[in-house]
Simulated assay, not measured.
Amino acid sequence: MSQETCTLATQLVRGMGSFFKNCECSRQSRCPHPYAIRYRDATGRQCEETGYANQTAALDRLNKVYDEKRNTPRQKADLKRQVGKQRFGEYASTWLPRQRHYVPGSVRSVNQVLNCHVLPVLESRRMNTFTPTVVEDFIMSMEERSVGLAAQQNAFDTLKKILLDAHRRGGITENPLDGVIPPEYIPRKITIPTLDEIHALKAAGSDELVLLIDQMSGCGLRNGEAYATHPDRMVADDVYRITEQIDGRTRQPARLKHRKPGEFRESPMPWTVRESILRFERNHGVGANGYLLRTQRADHWAHTTLNYQWEAAKKRAGITKRLTPYSLRHFFASNCLSNGIPITDVAEWMGHKNINMTFKIYRHLMPASVGRAARLLNGGL
């Protein structure tokens, strides 16, 4: 800043910082422009803030910052400084192993997002230099590279988690996401199979595929959760407890997505699903540790197993519509919402971390909610 624009700069106690007006008014003490402050935070990085109405407000903020610095233990201040000086790539490589709640599939997804979209742009940047402007420039760079909105949102969400973690640990003083407008991905229209198509797939599929179709369309399970189908999970005649999933690549049991180890969720179990599980157990018995779905060479299904059997059944059934196994989850949600079940319950049964995602994908399936509300309000009038 030039000498002319900071004529009111006032030095305070050594190390406390300064306050000033960044204007060219001849009588700055009486002009309406706000005061700004400049100081060094606990990591040694110079910071500047503006928007203070008077000297008292600016001094109060400087006093608060100075007290925080003096009361911060030396070891903690050194840690903050160390975090702030790290390159983003280095920090991200230490952040991911600390996310112990991530299942293996989530770890692979985050690594893919980092390597494809985030690290090529931000890997060498120091953590204490991240500001809202830097984050907005990153979003703009993805737009310039014509990155899809879904990929943009995934990249932004990953970056956001890493930066907020560094902010919480003191490596970034101010919130680097303050005021940033994230990219908004609007899910495309989902494809829901009809009941006739589900019956056709079951008629053309193996007994194993039939069991998986019943679990996903009837209880709303994810692929990996259906691989872990177990008779003991029927905790009541109409309740199925989901306690784990089978990783679709490693074929090994893993904890549920968005759940800590040992946590579970429960889903309503229609009579047809219960009969499907019991029938399969009678006809084929159980495999290792009681799991039902297995192959001749492995104790558990994998994504390759499902993809092969799904495409074969579609071909035999003559279905050309763009249906994937995940479409069965959409059928479950549609079945629930069209029968008046609250979307909050549907989100819980499907294991969504945030109900906003459930609203984005399935709100249009709620039967004429606005029209129904209008009729009810009219009756009250």
Results as ranks from 00 to 15, higher is better:
residue 139 I to T: 09
residue 152 Q to I: 09
residue 260 K to F: 10
residue 192 I to Y: 05
residue 139 I to M: 08
residue 181 I to S: 12
residue 54 N to R: 05
residue 303 H to K: 11
residue 289 N to C: 09
residue 66 Y to H: 15
residue 283 N to H: 11
residue 264 F to S: 15
residue 104 P to L: 04
residue 69 K to D: 05
residue 175 N to C: 12
residue 128 N to W: 09
residue 85 K to S: 13
residue 173 T to G: 12
residue 268 P to W: 01
residue 220 G to A: 11
residue 106 S to V: 03
residue 118 V to K: 06
residue 246 I to R: 06
residue 71 N to S: 14
residue 357 M to G: 01
residue 101 H to C: 03
residue 214 D to N: 11
residue 47 C to F: 01
residue 265 R to D: 08
residue 364 H to D: 14
residue 97 P to E: 01
residue 349 W to V: 07
residue 353 K to T: 02
residue 6 C to D: 01
residue 326 Y to D: 10
residue 378 N to W: 05
residue 51 G to H: 10
residue 114 L to D: 08
residue 72 T to K: 12
residue 104 P to Q: 05
residue 130 F to W: 09
residue 311 E to A: 12
residue 238 D to R: 00
residue 181 I to E: 12
residue 70 R to I: 13
residue 180 V to N: 06
residue 117 H to V: 06
residue 206 S to A: 07
residue 86 Q to C: 13
residue 325 P to L: 03
residue 281 E to A: 15
residue 375 R to K: 14
residue 189 K to A: 13
residue 153 Q to P: 00
residue 103 V to H: 07
residue 84 G to W: 10
residue 347 A to D: 04
residue 272 T to L: 01
residue 283 N to V: 06
residue 121 V to T: 13
residue 367 P to L: 10
residue 346 V to L: 13
residue 308 Y to D: 12
residue 147 V to D: 05
residue 213 I to S: 04
residue 104 P to C: 04
residue 5 T to A: 08
residue 354 N to K: 10
residue 160 K to E: 13
residue 276 S to C: 01
residue 207 D to F: 03
residue 367 P to I: 07
residue 229 T to Q: 03
residue 204 A to W: 03
residue 304 T to F: 04
residue 173 T to V: 03
residue 60 D to S: 13
residue 190 I to C: 00
residue 271 W to R: 00
residue 111 N to E: 15
residue 319 I to A: 09
residue 363 R to P: 00
residue 374 A to W: 02
residue 118 V to R: 04
residue 59 L to E: 09
residue 90 E to A: 15
residue 37 I to M: 09
residue 57 A to Q: 14
residue 126 R to T: 14
residue 322 R to P: 00
residue 184 E to H: 13
residue 324 T to L: 11
residue 199 H to A: 15
residue 19 F to C: 09
residue 233 R to H: 14
residue 37 I to H: 04
residue 330 H to L: 07
residue 161 K to Q: 15
residue 338 S to N: 12
residue 297 R to C: 07
residue 316 R to W: 01
residue 330 H to S: 04
